[in-house]
Amino acid sequence: SGVNQQQLQQLMDMGFTREHAMEALLNTSTMEQATEYLLTHP
């Protein structure tokens, strides 16, 4: 699906929903950016 499943699982383990985590990974290129994205786009 174009996203790193390991990163997706890590974000879900942090408490984010699958949909939200996927959106973040699709819009960013690193785990750090994805986390930042999730925190700034709740």
Rank of each mutant, 00 (worst) to 15 (best):
T28P: 01
N4A: 08
E32G: 04
S29V: 08
A24L: 01
T35R: 14
E19F: 11
L38C: 11
Q9T: 10
V3E: 05
T35Y: 15
M12L: 07
T28S: 07
M14D: 04
E19A: 13
T28N: 05
M22I: 14
M31R: 02
Q33I: 02
H20A: 13
M12H: 03
L38H: 02
Q9A: 11
F16Y: 12
F16E: 03
M14S: 04
Q7M: 13
M22T: 14
N27Y: 07
T40E: 10
A24S: 03
L39D: 15
Q5A: 13
T30L: 02
Q10K: 10
T40G: 13
Q33Y: 03
H20G: 05
G2L: 13
L25T: 02
L11A: 01
Q7G: 06
M14R: 05
E36Y: 05
S1P: 13
T28M: 03
L38I: 05
L38S: 01
N4F: 12
G2Q: 12
H41W: 13
Q9D: 08
H41V: 07
G15F: 03
E23N: 07
Y37E: 14
A34G: 01
M31Q: 03
G15Y: 02
G2N: 13
L11C: 02
M22V: 12
Q9C: 14
T30M: 01
H41P: 04
L25A: 02
T30I: 01
Q7W: 15
S29R: 09
E19N: 11
L39K: 15
Q10I: 14
L25M: 06
G2S: 13
N4G: 06
Q5S: 12
L8F: 04
A21Y: 00
D13Q: 09
R18A: 09
Q10E: 09
M31F: 15
M12A: 04
T17M: 11
H41N: 07
Y37A: 09
E32L: 06
S1H: 13
Q7L: 11
E32H: 04
Q33L: 06
A34T: 02
T30Y: 02
T17F: 08
A24K: 00
A24P: 00
A21K: 00
L39I: 10
Q5R: 11
S1I: 13
A21L: 02
Y37H: 14
H41G: 10
M31T: 03
G15P: 00
Q7K: 07
L39H: 14
G15E: 02
E32S: 05
T35A: 11
H41M: 15
Y37N: 11
D13K: 10
G2R: 12
T40P: 03
L25V: 04
T17C: 15
L25K: 00
V3M: 07
T35H: 14
E32F: 04
L38K: 01
G15H: 04
L25Q: 02
E23Q: 09
G2H: 14
T17L: 14
M14E: 04
T28W: 04
G2P: 12
N27M: 12
Q5E: 13
V3T: 08
S1Q: 14
R18C: 10
D13P: 00
E32M: 05
E23R: 07
A24I: 01
H20E: 08
Q10Y: 12
Q6V: 13
L25N: 00
A21T: 04
T28F: 07
L38M: 04
G2T: 12
A21E: 00
G15D: 03
E32A: 09
H41T: 09
T35D: 03
T17V: 10
M22K: 07
L8W: 04
E23T: 09
